[in-house]
């Protein structure tokens, strides 16, 4: 079957099977390899993308079901250079091997849009579905708090300007 997917604001026509999962379309047909395949069972979150602003495991989400939604991948949020959370992840050392990073960045992007001033607990809860085997998470949490602080400071600055 042919479907149209709107990925990072661009409509793409793709040929899929009814059983195809979104991750395979992104990686194999659209060559957006930011989303990673870790477990293919919804356990690790390496494949996280946003669908209508919510984090979803693309390894088990039906590609056909994603038609008529807004899909965002890590490529989309860094189209104009690194986003605030990506910068903070680099600065704080929230990345080691990097395999989990695109998924974590997407989850945290959704979190920061919904909650501009998260507590460490909010960040930990948001990351329930993302496994990182390297960092021990604490630098990922501090990166999130830093990104939030920077964004709030910038907003305050903009308001004064």
């Amino acid at each position: 079957m042919k479907i149209n997917l709107k990925v990072n604001g661009i409509l793409e026509e793709v040929e899929i099977e009814a059983s195809t999962v979104l991750l395979d379309v992104l990686r194999d047909k659209l060559h957006l390899t930011g989303a990673k395949e870790g477990c293919r069972e919804g356990e690790c979150g390496a494949c996280t993308v946003l669908i209508d602003g919510q984090p979803v495991d693309s390894c088990l989400y039906s590609a056909a079901a994603a038609a008529n939604t807004e899909i965002e991948t890590v490529e989309g949020i860094s189209a104009n250079g690194l986003s605030a959370i990506q910068k903070a992840m680099v600065e704080e050392g929230g990345i080691q091997c990097g395999f989990c990073t695109p998924g974590i960045v997407m989850t945290l992007t959704a979190l920061l849009r919904q909650n501009a001033d998260p507590t460490p607990k909010d960040v930990a809860a948001a990351l329930n579905g993302n496994i990182c085997r390297c960092t021990g998470y604490s630098r990922i949490v501090s990166a999130t708090l830093k990104a939030a602080k920077n964004a709030m400071a910038q907003k305050a600055g903009d308001a004064h300007a």
Binding site: G42, V56, N128
Partner: peptide, 9 residues
């Protein structure tokens, strides 16, 4: 039930 990704959908 699972993580945020599972609860979203």
């Amino acid at each position: 039930v699972g993580g945020w990704q599972t609860q979203s959908v």
